[in-house]
Design a protein around this nucleic acid. Sequence first.
DNA 1: CGCCCTATTGAGACTTGTCAAGTCGGGTGG
DNA 2: CCACCCGACTTGACAAGTCTCAATAGGGCG
Lengths: 227, 227
Amino acid sequence: MSPERNQDVDPRLTIYSGLSANERARLDSLVTRRRVEAGAYLFHQHTPARSVHMLEEGMMMMERSSSTGRRQVMAFMHPGNLIGINYREHYEFTVSALRPSLVRDIPLKPFIALQDEVPQLKDNVRSISGNILAHTLDQVFALGQKKAHERVCFLLKQLSSWQPSASAHRLELAMTRQDIADYLGLTIETVSRAFGKLKREGIINIHSAHTVEILDRATMNELALAD
Amino acid sequence: MSPERNQDVDPRLTIYSGLSANERARLDSLVTRRRVEAGAYLFHQHTPARSVHMLEEGMMMMERSSSTGRRQVMAFMHPGNLIGINYREHYEFTVSALRPSLVRDIPLKPFIALQDEVPQLKDNVRSISGNILAHTLDQVFALGQKKAHERVCFLLKQLSSWQPSASAHRLELAMTRQDIADYLGLTIETVSRAFGKLKREGIINIHSAHTVEILDRATMNELALAD
DNA sequence: CGCCCTATTGAGACTTGTCAAGTCGGGTGG
DNA sequence: CCACCCGACTTGACAAGTCTCAATAGGGCG
């Protein structure tokens, strides 16, 4: 995220934020829960979109792939995130679980209707849409302007901002190097070398391929925002 | 734009689409018109957002710049486009005119209120928000996966899709090479070389720096979508 | 223990960025 | 009307960054 915006974004905003107990109950009455095992799909690109989804537990990944087979990972999703909100007739991306996940499905039509009756819910959806766009604009900025190791810091910063406590220095990466490469517009080799560079420079420590420790958060943030 | 989506996107959708005469009049009653001369600003990053804007005539450019001075152009805007719709407290980008432009300002609060009374308007805004996100995702795809000359084709394809007739082969580029470079995440030199390469290969002809002719649209489209 | 998948590392090719020089064209002043 | 000037664009040579291909290392699981 860019420094210019962080102050007025609450990434923890969910559709439930600020609702009364009664309003929550009305929203909950629409919800059905669903488990998605690691590696399984929540939905596929080009299938009809009839629900929005809220990730309750676990971690998911949103990707788009083209006819020629290459793919771009658009986002990694954390508990509380709303999925498929900028709906059209069909989903425009595929969402799959990186970890065993629990998802709330909310049928589109009643969800829209409820927004008309609960202004706070409508505001939440609006804000969340804004957050999604802002996230995507950050990604455009990163892909357009940053070098490989800066992009990796950009990702690490995003992931660590979802950690329960900001002081947690240990990060569990649920995704593969290929997922990271496809998110950052790089190859796995370049991602690997970028990790190596950050380790050599004492900014992170790599315990295993999927466990990194942030040693110098200030420098990491600086690199993440560099452009 | 990706081929997967083109069928269900109408880029000409505006907030007025499908409104009755009466509804149009109610919307128009909120509107004030404003001229913005070429090079002037519609609004700046970090200023309070109190209106949305619809470009009526001309061409504008949306950009974001960072504290370290580098900038990313997020979009080039054409007549009918809605500007500043994913509002927050403050604008997150700067919008300026590339050509003398005419803009409709619509105060935010009554605009939101009117959406509650005119469902078609609400649907239009929703769809337009979706189009904006889709456009941004396309840009992520382009910056993440495409080579320089493919990115240039990506831009040419976008611009030509706004031409009045699809068969018009002559394109007027209102923006500078620097604007193009900042949009595509390249340098002006690389953009210039990419144009040269496309010309050498007979895909385009360059009459002047700001006038290109599309000679082989099929190949251009293919390159634009390549990934 | 060994297999398989993933990740790392290395060498060389290709693409893009950087720096510098040169060209083009529109606008101004003589 | 022409010459000059200035900004924008192009082109060239080289450096830096990233990709590709190939070989090696590591970790999880049967």
